[in-house]
């Protein structure tokens, strides 16, 4: 069994690298896109709010796996032929963006209205109010659930193996296909995922405690 694990480790590390790259891309893209859409949801004019609300509700209503298949198999009809890797990143980004939208809404919603008023009264423009009044406060509410949500990107990335992208999950499958030694490899893979995600959720909990201490 030890031999099997030693044999597997280089393959798994290769896959882990892909898992990390996919997760990072998804997190960066979805934070930018979801962040902007979230601000649009809170402060935008009615049509923007409806669009963002609709986008978020629909995306959150679709299983990630179906979203991945839909984008990989469905988009070619619209003339967009994506490689499995790009399709996977796009699908997970769409899924995560909806989550970030809700993170932003929750974080900004927790700030009393009077803060905006006070910012206006001092003569700050909208962008300045956002940057100097809302953002520094909202970030404390935003960060813990956002970091916790990164684990969803990591876990979701395991589904890209179904498109043939050689991530950690797919690497495990390949090794098992060669060695027929399933259980030790699944356990090893689970431990790797666990270490990454547990680290992230522990960080999230730590920040939450820190910030709740500052707040009052």
């Amino acid at each position: 069994m030890l031999a099997a694990i030693l044999y597997a480790i280089p393959f798994l590390m290769q896959g882990l690298l892909t898992t990390i790259v996919v997760s990072l891309l998804v997190v960066v893209l979805s934070t930018a896109i979801g962040g902007l859409m979230g601000i649009g949801l809170v402060y935008g004019p009615a049509p923007v709010r409806w669009l963002v609300r609709g986008f978020s509700d629909i995306v959150r209503g679709i299983p990630i796996l179906v979203l991945i298949f839909f984008i990989y198999y469905g988009l070619p009809i619209a003339g967009l032929n994506l490689q499995p890797f790009s399709a996977a990143v796009l699908a997970l980004t769409v899924f995560k963006s909806a989550q970030v939208i809700e993170n932003v809404r929750g974080a900004i919603g927790s700030i009393p209205r009077g803060q905006m008023d006070a910012g206006k009264a001092v003569g700050l423009t909208f962008a300045q109010r956002l940057a100097y009044v809302i953002a520094p406060q909202a970030i404390r509410r935003f960060l813990p659930p956002w970091i916790n949500g990164v684990t969803d990107a990591v876990k979701g990335s395991a589904l890209v193996s179904l498109l043939g992208v050689t991530d950690l999950m797919h690497a495990m499958q390949q090794v098992i296909g060669r060695t027929y030694n399933a259980l030790p490899l699944y356990v090893l893979g689970a431990i790797i995922y666990f270490v990454i995600n547990y680290g992230l959720s522990a960080l999230s909990r730590m920040l939450e405690r820190r910030f709740s201490y500052i707040r009052e």
């Binding site: 193996s161 499958q173 699944y186 666990f194």
Partner: peptide
């Protein structure tokens, strides 16, 4: 913590194949 931090697809494989 174990269940929450491991992808569901891996848990499914683990139980069915592992």
């Amino acid at each position: 913590e174990f269940i929450r931090n491991v992808p569901l697809i891996l848990l499914v494989y683990l139980v069915f194949y592992g």
